[in-house]
Amino acid sequence: MSIFAVSFAGLVGVLNLLLTAGVIRRMRAYDGQPSGRSDPGRWRVVYKPPRVMRAAGECLGAFHGRTVRGEPIGEEFFARSTTLVGAFTSGCTACEERLPEFAEFAAAFPGGGANVLALLVGDAGDLAGKVRLLEPVATVVVEPDRGGPVGEALGVRAYPALALVEPGGVVGASGAEMEHLFLDPAEV
Rank of each mutant, 00 (worst) to 15 (best):
S2L: 15
V6A: 15
V6I: 14
F8W: 08
F8K: 12
N16I: 06
N16A: 12
L17G: 07
L18K: 09
T20R: 12
R25E: 10
M27E: 08
R28L: 14
G32M: 07
S35K: 08
S35H: 11
G36I: 03
G36P: 00
R42V: 10
W43A: 14
V45R: 12
Y47V: 15
K48G: 15
V52D: 01
G61L: 06
F63T: 06
F63W: 12
T67M: 09
T67G: 07
V68G: 11
G70S: 09
P72D: 12
I73A: 00
I73Y: 01
E76K: 02
E76D: 14
E76R: 06
S81G: 14
A87Q: 07
F88C: 04
G91P: 05
C95T: 04
E96F: 03
E96N: 11
E97Y: 08
R98F: 02
L99A: 07
L99C: 09
A103M: 07
E104P: 02
A114H: 10
A118V: 12
L119G: 03
L119R: 02
G122D: 01
A128L: 06
V131K: 02
R132E: 15
V137R: 00
V140C: 07
E143P: 08
G151M: 05
G151T: 10
E152S: 15
G155E: 03
Y159Q: 01
Y159P: 00
A163V: 09
G169D: 03
G169L: 01
V171G: 03
G172D: 00
G175K: 00
G175D: 02
M178C: 03
E179W: 12
E179D: 10
L181I: 04
L183R: 13
P185H: 09
A186T: 11
A186Y: 13
